[in-house]
Design a protein around this nucleic acid. Structure first.
Lengths: 192, 192, 192, 192
DNA sequence: GATGAATGAGCCTTCATTCAT
DNA sequence: GATGAATGAAGGCTCATTCAT
């Protein structure tokens, strides 16, 4: 039964014991292995199920919108709403194989924060210099980190896109250029 | 010796055996444990070291730039360059605790792709409808996924930012609004 | 279906899984267990069947011979012919419960060889010393080992014959004495 | 510790549990696995040890004999004495991987007996017909079975000797021809 | 009689960690 | 400080057998 979802979400893949999953079910160990040939396959089945369901729900909500840009907005909103409401689902789908309790998670946060702070700081200054439009730079910095992270992971696993040649130009375009304050009239001072 | 880095990068945290780390060193098991009280601490030490070094390098390159917006650009470029050149470093820093060899990674990619495709498709249509500026929608979709992912992971681990109330507006602003094609002449015609 | 014979022959008793036997049949698991109450009984049924058939065939061929000594010769010939032609049958009947793939079999061969070599060596010398008639000492040594082995296994399982008091004299008689070169002219010469 | 010998001898390879071997030792499970990487390797180590020791003892006793034929006799005697005195050793060395308690052993005996009886019966008649010298035909039949068995097992595992072309002539020579009653004076009746 | 999903005790093996030397 | 043999809890998985349908 897919209430194995609970154990995986609570403990992470590695610390989840088949024995515990079984204990929380009415199924026996053998019964579980009859349907899923290994712990890995069980985990994948759970992930697939949840992943597909999430996408399906988003698609349902999207369908009502006429224009693509509205659909994108709804998709974004729905994703954050759904995952933001169900912590367990989010944990399962987003951090999957992590484990080691909280220590690991803290460390990840700590390390990513090093880079995020650097970005945030410069975003703040760029806003102050009136180079880019004002935004919540903290969140923007997370966005930067997440974007870079994802692009690199893709490359790591699939070999594409090439980080520098392909991804970099696009990231620049979206993260920097389109955030620029239109400096059309370079007359007069800056609005500091 | 931090050549434990190699083992962690190759096998992931869980599948890395202390025995193998020791085997690749001149240090003995006891010796290793004298310096690092546990596998977890050893791993953290490696991560810290690498994370800090990466940030330091980026900071060095940034320092030469005057304007913050240039610094941001250099930071972005440098991050992608450095990590794009050293697969191992990237793997260690980005996918850390994952494991299960490639099966796991493939699954992650597969599941994220479901959502990414949905975004990409609608980005394509939005471009076609002339709602947003043309971009490489494939990469843009990765950016979306990464951004959402990171924002949610932060919330998961630290409790902030609130996905819907805090993150959503900013994401909309950066991912959607600032990509809009200025529809200045709303006169006449129809944008159907 | 006694095509369970195939699985037992290929994998040995322990490594043969009921599931695989079932898979190779049109019968269902329950169906198999209806006819044979346990794996052991199924195995015994197969063995019985094959053992009896082998003996029956030998008896048929023997029947045509008049003199007992010719019958013995035909029995010997037939046994080697039939088993030498059907590897699977031989494996099933002779090494039955062994398993562990080839590693085990290699080990058995290796260990028995230690003793066989010792015998072979001395048979060679005995032939050289003209004490016994020339034979293929390699094969003779196998015969020795097999004879000793079988006599001891019998004793192990049934308590008789007593290895030293009963078996030894007979083995000596057949393996040694009757192989002696008749030293009829004991006159003169020296047997060194 | 090689007191694992006890468990293997008592239960057979498959039914011997590493847990029990450990229980009977002062060593821990991990400790055992530190020295022997697997159950199989442990078993082989035990077998090797015992096999070598047996051969060494026989060689010691043999060494005192001058003539090869005497050595053969001593080897035969010693082998039967040593193994006949130590049931456990015999079981370990001779039936190795068997298991299934006694049921299996009984079956083996039963099946081999089918063939052995056939031989015994004809040996009896051959003796009665005065074709071969009188022997304990029961034991001789075991010898036949053991010899055939061993020759075939060798062929099964190593591909040689070829049962019919190579082994058969030698077996005939030793088992039949050299047992023949010299029929030099074919005069007169038989001594029935 | 047949089916095959379910059972569950049991097994081998791993591995982070310890500690006597 | 270093060594590496030893520890032992824990875990994933197998498989002969059962039994409701």
């Amino acid at each position: 039964m897919e209430a194995a979802e609970a154990v995986f979400a609570e403990k992470g893949y590695h610390d989840a014991a088949m024995d515990e999953i079984v204990r929380r079910t009415s199924v026996s160990k053998g019964g579980l292995y009859f349907h899923f040939p290994s712990k890995e396959r069980l985990f994948f089945a759970v992930m697939d199920h949840l992943g597909r369901r999430l996408v399906r729900r988003i698609e349902e909500r999207i369908a009502r919108q006429e224009r693509a840009i509205d659909r994108l907005e709804v998709a974004l909103t729905t994703a954050l709403e759904l995952l933001g409401r169900r912590r367990r689902l989010a944990k399962l789908l987003l951090v999957q194989g992590y484990s080691m309790g909280n220590a690991f998670e803290q460390k990840r946060t700590e390390i990513y924060s090093g880079f995020a702070s650097l970005i945030e700081e410069n975003l703040d200054r760029a806003v102050a210099e009136n180079s880019i439009r004002p935004v919540n730079t903290r969140i923007a910095s997370y966005l930067w980190v997440g974007a870079i992270n994802e692009v690199l992971i893709r490359w790591l696993y699939t070999g594409s896109p090439d980080p520098v040649r392909e991804a970099l130009p696009e990231l620049k375009k979206i993260l920097l250029e389109s955030q620029r304050v239109p400096q059309d009239s370079l007359v007069g001072g800056e609005q500091s």
